[in-house]
Design a protein around this nucleic acid. Structure first.
Lengths: 159, 159
DNA sequence: GTCATTGTTGAAAGTGATTATCAATATTCT
DNA sequence: AGAATATTGATAATCACTTTCAACAATGAC
């Protein structure tokens, strides 16, 4: 299987973009762990490893990584998106608590049949999907309208 | 069927919140059309109808409307969320073009079986889900890596 | 109904994630 | 190698959203 770096190189070639050491450094760091990440976390991880990468470079790279299929948005929390690398993975979805923000990953039967139907019906080229299931976790579901989780915060707040 | 206003009144009662004329005005405006909305659009619609509602009041109401199940997030575009009212509707999902942002609503077979399985497996109280399917629309798919839609903008840009 | 409690409102200021600007630099193609 | 132009980092700007706070008003108790 092609490495993520190779995938990105092909992508830049096709798009007329340029590859740079900074971009490869960022991509390697993204794939260095299995964790979700956000821009700030990623920036700090790079900083801790003495890599001199600016935040704007990360922000500028993300749309390309999304379009190349290397990463996807995982969820929006605390005022910003969290991402995850998806190249070479089983597709998975998220089950999230609406009150405390607890997130569980789960595998679901691929919705390929649905994707095919939509592609045909609307003449789209379908590249993927995002399924989020919402609800209340064991702790929060006792009484979702009354229960208060100690300063867990509203998962939908901006920042 | 209970009206959306009645649903919200019950919700405030249960939660120890207060209902106000401002909130009912906002809710009525949300349900006055079938359209998706964002905070700014909603604010302008109210302003055009000479309703004196401040933006913070809208921002403060939205988490309650989400929690009460009257609305849901539809998608994130142009740097902010777009919402839609869902009370009394068939559930529907969105098919979106990654390049130009074109959005099509579609009905999908309810994922109730999946929801039930997740509820049991993770002891969650599942209240709903959001399914977005991504791809490239007929115009943009010709060559998604080269084609440029005249100033349609990157649907993922912040603002 | 009246009163006390406390959630809500609007205006204004603040916050912070993301984007734009721009000169210097580096990649890609010929 | 050289031209064309995309990328970088530092900085400033943007703007969606939140906070603050004093005035007000909904709710529940009496």
């Amino acid at each position: 299987m092609k490495s993520e770096i190779e995938v990105f190189r092909e992508f830049t070639r096709k798009k007329g973009l340029r590859n740079t050491p900074e971009r490869e450094t960022i991509i390697k760091e993204i794939f260095a762990t299995h964790d979700h990440f956000d821009v700030d976390e990623l920036y700090l991880r790079l900083k801790n490893k003495k890599k001199k990468i600016s935040k704007p470079s990360i922000y500028r790279l993300i749309p390309h990584l999304l379009e190349s299929g290397l990463i996807q948005e995982a969820y929006f929390e605390d005022g910003h998106f969290h991402y995850e690398h998806i190249y070479g993975h089983e597709h998975h979805c998220h089950l999230r608590c609406l009150r405390c923000g607890k997130t569980i990953e789960f595998q679901e039967k691929p919705l390929e049949k649905l994707e095919g139907k939509l592609a045909e019906e609307y003449d789209f080229s379908v590249t993927g999907h995002k399924l989020e299931v919402f609800g209340f976790c064991p702790q929060c579901k006792v009484d979702p309208h009354v229960a208060k989780v100690e300063d867990a915060g509203d998962p939908r707040r901006q920042r």
